[in-house]
Design a protein around this nucleic acid. Structure first.
Length: 487
DNA sequence: CAACTTCCCTGCGCGC
DNA sequence: TGCGCGCAGGGAAGTT
């Protein structure tokens, strides 16, 4: 089912194959497919030469000499191919263009949904309904944030059918809509006019990037997520949600659901794409990285711009402070040996225990995990109420602790493995073996990078890292948050 | 006008 | 193995 990238791939291929070919005659086997009526259609094309092939949305525009244009839509299964003249046609060949160089350009279409309209060049924009209403092409130059904000604000329609409507944005079909909504963490039934600006910006960036990736990949999208969550073997299907009903979400592991939205089969992750009754304007950026990759330096950059940072480590300490239910649960689970004489947690004793016994670590996480999640949620609620535009959630184990679904976007700070090892050995005065043990105790840096929405490369100077953070702030629409003092 | 529904088609997977 | 049913899908046209 061709969507814009596939149609663009077809356009390029045809340009190469028949870009300047001359048509001698045309056979039409399924008359409803063409307009004007078949005999007229054949007569008009005989002797014409293809000068160029254009594309608008999912429409192909064959430009002939004498100001003639053929508007062709492949719909579901339409295909063009070029064969030597005289090759027998197949069951589903509906139109054959005989070329002057003893080749045939053939159109096949099992479901006969495709259509071809022949008209005077320049009139197609008025006479073909789909072209007349066609929205902007999904590229950085043609699809602006301002335009998207305007059209989103005017429609109560669910975002899924809204994006499928070619008059809003050109070229998106069922697959790319599901994919870009997943990438942007937006529920397919979220009304367009309830989507906050930061998500419109994310969606725009994802649509543009996804379409570009697919065009560069000749009509297929290639993502680099590997075998997260126990999927065996090489990841062959390059789609993140489409056709993955029941399989784990690559971001959070929750099974992908398939429902019907506006009569269309729709795939989404119920956990990271929650339907929001009152979506706030607060964007939550999850910040994570590997041990000693320099995540805290990036965190400090945000703080310097007065952007609030929720520190997961700090919260983790708070929920087991003296007098908390968290500490009481640790005491009743692991015994009084875990409590120091002054009533505080004996981190060393607990650390020794959980490092040697995996079940103990799971038990500990079972106690602290929910408490941390609750505390984070409460803090976020406060920021949302105050309509703070951007909050950073600084969490070293964002993925491991299954917290990825609470954020709107994930930033991963990374360095090459060798640099990570050297920095860790130097920082914590560790021998190589111990440093390696600590690194391998975490989800691998490569895997974190794969699951990131944005990656900060921290191998070079502070200035270079800062430039990347500033760039992200500007692109995400938070440029105005950077105060002059901090700049 | 917005928001639905129907129609156009064929192959395929499913249940019996 | 075979038969019928329902579903898939983009976009236009028709209906509420």
């Amino acid at each position: 089912m061709p969507e814009l990238p596939e149609v663009e791939t077809v356009r390029r291929g045809l340009t190469r194959l028949v870009g300047h070919a001359q048509i001698t005659s045309v056979d039409v086997y399924y008359e409803k497919m063409v307009s004007p009526e078949a005999n007229q259609f054949k007569k008009m094309l005989a002797g014409k030469t293809i000068e160029r092939i254009d594309r608008r949305g999912k429409y192909l525009l064959f430009r002939f000499n004498d100001d003639l244009t053929m508007v062709s839509h492949l719909r579901m299964e339409g295909k063009y191919d070029v064969q030597p003249a005289g090759n027998p046609i197949t069951k589903h060949t509906h139109v054959v263009f005989h070329l002057a160089d003893d080749r045939d350009l053939r159109y096949t279409d099992t479901r006969k949904f495709g259509r071809m309209h022949l008209l005077k060049t320049g009139e197609e924009a008025e006479l073909v309904a789909g072209l007349k209403k066609m929205g902007p092409e999904p590229t950085a130059e043609t699809l602006s944030v301002a335009y998207m904000k305007t059209i989103f604000g005017k429609s109560k329609k669910a975002i899924k059918p809204f994006l499928l409507d070619q008059s809003n944005i050109a070229g998106l079909g069922n697959i790319y809509v599901d994919e870009t909504l997943w990438l942007s963490r937006i529920h397919p039934e979220q009304p367009a006019n309830t989507i906050p600006e930061f998500q419109i910006r994310q969606l725009r960036a994802n649509i543009i990037a996804e379409i570009k990736r697919a065009i560069d990949g000749h009509g297929t999208t290639v993502h680099s997520f590997s075998t997260a969550y126990g999927e065996a073997g090489e990841f062959q299907n390059h789609l993140m949600v489409y056709g993955r009903k029941g399989e784990p979400c690559f971001r959070c592991g929750t099974p992908i659901e398939k429902t019907k939205v506006a009569q269309r089969g729709t795939h989404f992750c119920p956990d990271c794409q929650a339907l929001r009754k009152n979506p706030g304007e607060t964007m939550v950026l999850g910040l994570t990285g590997g041990i000693a990759t320099g995540k805290s330096a990036v965190s400090d950059l945000f703080k310097a711009y007065q952007i609030p940072v929720i520190d997961a480590d700090k919260i983790a300490r708070k929920v087991v402070a003296p007098g908390t239910t968290g500490l009481k649960q640790i005491q009743s689970t692991f015994g009084w040996q875990m409590i120091q004489p002054d009533g505080s947690l004996d981190r060393h004793a607990l650390g020794t225990l959980v490092f040697s016994q995996p079940e103990a670590l799971a038990q500990l996480n079972g106690i602290t995990g929910p408490l941390i999640k609750k505390a984070v949620k409460r803090q976020l609620q406060g920021y949302r109420r105050r309509k703070v535009p951007l909050v950073i959630y600084d969490a070293p184990t964002l993925f491991e602790a299954h917290q990825a679904a609470v954020v709107n976007e994930i930033m991963v700070v990374t360095v090459p493995e060798q640099v990570q090892l050297e920095r860790l050995m130097a920082r914590d005065q560790l021998p190589k073996k111990e440093a390696l043990d600590r690194i391998s105790a975490q989800l691998s840096l490569a895997e974190k990078v794969k699951r990131a929405d944005v990656v900060i490369d921290n191998r070079h100077s502070v200035d270079k890292t800062k430039a990347q953070v500033v760039r992200w702030l500007n692109e995400a629409g938070f440029g105005s948050l950077m105060t002059d003092k901090a700049k």
